[in-house]
Amino acid sequence: MTIVTGKAEARRRLQPGWSGALRKIWEHRADYAYVLPAIVVMLIVIAYPIYYTVELSFFKTPPGLQLRDKSFIGFDNYTAILTSQVFWKVTWNTLIWTLGSTLISFVLGFATALALHCDFIGRGVLRAILIIPWVISAVAASYIWKWIYHSDFGIIGAVLVGLGLTDRPPNFIDNVSTVLPSLIVVNIWREFPFAMIMMMAGLQTVPEQLLRAAEVDGANAWQRFWHVTFPHLRNVSTVTILLLAVANFNSFIIPWIMTGGGPSNASHIWITHIYELAFGRQRWGVASAYSVLLFLILMTLGYFYVRALSGNERKEGSA
């Protein structure tokens, strides 16, 4: 039932030509005023850099000149990127990095959350210990892992040699074939606690009476999980996967500190490549074009993230 107040009616009479959207904005002007400072800040620190990056992506910025000496070249930077071999190599690395890190972190985090959802002695302590990789500084973790993996004196190599399993320490990060999987392992170690926390929170929302009812109906553990628990976790899973994917696509610290994108570009992902192009080689125009492409991909992921969140809200609203 819609209640039309006299005030609202009078407002409508005052602005007879306004469209529905504008009228809504006018009606919510106080709300907009509250968010205005945040919008202004966002325009300064987000919208302008985005605009500038897009603009710069259409310019040639020779490394020997100042940025103000740039020249307009249209889509040439985009063409150069898409036709370069390095782009495809870096894109392939990025896909492996993002998918590998995201999916394995999620599965591992989910499995751990399920294990920790059961009641057992020491659960709290275990939960606290498992969160450590996530709260530890990524920079510190990268340096520690660099030494764990060290191709000559790493702990893993020493243990394997000590056990007689190998003559020489395995080459983890100085080899083009093994470097990316090795970095993904570090990333998973750091990220799976995030997935674990998200899924643990999700598990709290699964109605206990539904599980009990299913049990009474004769459903076994797997059936209870698949038909009751998992459907309830679908939205939180989507959100977790999207957040992990966005974070991994944007990930910089671990590959940069541990290998600098090497050896021989084997661990360069988009973000490290962009950094090197911009700050190491001063190809600001090309780096900007890369950034625009990355921005579009992340915005697409962001769209699905928002959709997933809205889906949650709608579901909760209808429930």
Partner: peptide
């Protein structure tokens, strides 16, 4: 030369890495 930092910090090490890893 103004290009020296890129040559010394990126191109030369890249050359070494490409040869030593067997990428080239």
């Amino acid at each position: 030369l103004p290009q020296s930092p890129e040559i010394m910090n990126i191109i030369v090490p890249d050359m070494l890495q490409n040869a030593l890893t067997g990428a080239m």
